[in-house]
Design a protein around this nucleic acid. Structure first.
Lengths: 243, 243
DNA sequence: AACATCGTTCTGCAATACGGAACACCCATG
DNA sequence: CATGGGTGTTCCGTATTGCAGAACGATGTT
């Protein structure tokens, strides 16, 4: 089914380009003649997944957006989490978000941003590394098969780079029921995370992201209390929906 | 390019299904043998646009979500609007959102929800009617070619149903620089909207949605002042980015 | 003005998508 | 327990269809 793959190549190329591309550029990127690219792009434009601007260049269309959001709607945990995250973010004025494992990667599924001038603003649908985040440690502790852990690249001086150090942090996260990330991924960014457990299964994690200074001012205990409260609230709502 | 069309049929079917579907059901819906459906779905699953649950059923995957949100990222106006909407929503405690015209339809591109128990919660990527919304009137006033106006279905007793009444409302919106929707689309829902004008071009509209009672308690003047302020803030940020 | 590059259309050839048939499997019902 | 209808999956011969090169007009650059 090479034809569909070519079409998806084009979709991903334009989705990740972030700007409008010309036909010739697309053809070069996909390593095919212009005529083939033209033929492949036509049905994608006809269905609204791609659009053409005034210069005839191609870009992602909002058919893609509609499809993508239809997908998010279907996740019950996103539904359950949204008001909980919103309430928590409004109360503290900082950013809370929900991360789940899908396809071996950790994906930001829902978020509620705080109102500070300096605040974390993760992109919905973006993915975060496993070994350098609080959520990653929780997943390694509760559902290691759900995530793929390959190399351990160094993001900051605080990044855990050895399997043994990581295993210790994971064991600690498991026994405590929460995890933190103290500038291990991005300098200046601290995160506290708690698992959303439903019937013993890890359905996702709630994370609270703050600038390092505010995290230390707030204190680990207070941050952990808030993410655990939010995570438990989401778990309760999920259990309620099931019945 | 029938093959790509078949694949897109499957994508839209599963995107709009709202639940996981079995292979045989998909094959029936698309009117093709099971073997063909199986062959077409395989590359979509391999790329993460679709996923299979524990029972082997197909559902929308988060590759779709990633693609869709990558589309939203490409829109500079969504980027510019997000913090402005958030600030406005936080200040008033009501829902602000940004609507733009794409492909002849009015689409909700970004939003910031209020914290009231009863609040408007439009879905991102969903579209709203032209003739029965405040945003629609503004588009008819400033960029009538960007939207398609066909029939004028009646949604509520207040819906404008004649072209002349609509033309009068549009003229009023143009001269005033703002528009309202007083339960014309959904009973109990009032909206005030203001245009985001950059260099004289209409780039989108900011809308403030409230329950009717709160809208009248707040007053039209106050609501208009807030949406105009937000719209001007977004326009300023857009002009700043261009330089 | 000459040139290069672009987007688009056309066409013969070859690749490949098509759908029926066959298979193992699951769960209902008899 | 046996039977039956249903499922998801794989295989394969056929002919439909996608492929790439050439040619065209349009656009904008040196």
């Amino acid at each position: 089914m090479a034809t569909i793959d070519k079409a998806l190549d084009a979709l991903f190329l334009l989705g990740q380009a972030g700007q409008a591309l010309r036909l010739a550029d697309i053809a070069r990127s996909l390593d095919m003649p212009r005529s083939s690219a033209h033929r492949i792009l036509a049905p994608l434009v006809a269905r609204g997944l791609l659009e053409r601007d005034a210069h005839g260049r191609y870009q992602a269309g909002l058919g893609l957006m509609t499809l993508g959001l239809a997908c998010a709607r279907r996740e019950p945990i996103a539904h359950a989490a949204q008001p909980v995250l919103e309430a928590a973010a409004h109360e503290l004025g900082e950013t809370f978000f929900l991360v789940v494992a899908r396809g071996g990667r950790l994906v930001v599924l829902e978020k509620a941003e705080g109102d500070g001038f300096l605040r974390a603003a993760p992109r919905l649908g973006s993915s975060v590394p496993v070994h350098a985040t609080a959520v990653g440690k929780l997943y390694l502790a509760h559902a290691p098969d759900a995530v793929e852990l390959e190399a351990l690249p160094r993001y900051t001086p605080a990044t855990l780079r050895s399997r043994t150090a990581l295993a210790a942090a994971v064991a600690e996260a498991r026994s405590r029921g929460w995890a933190v990330n103290d500038e291990e991924w991005q300098a200046g960014l601290c995160v506290a995370a708690a698992p959303v457990l439903v019937g013993g299964r890890l359905e996702g994690c709630v994370a609270l992201a703050l600038v390092a200074a505010r995290f230390h001012a707030l204190g680990t205990a207070a941050a952990v209390r808030r993410v655990r409260h939010a995570a438990e609230g989401i778990a309760l709502r999920l259990e309620g929906e099931k019945s």
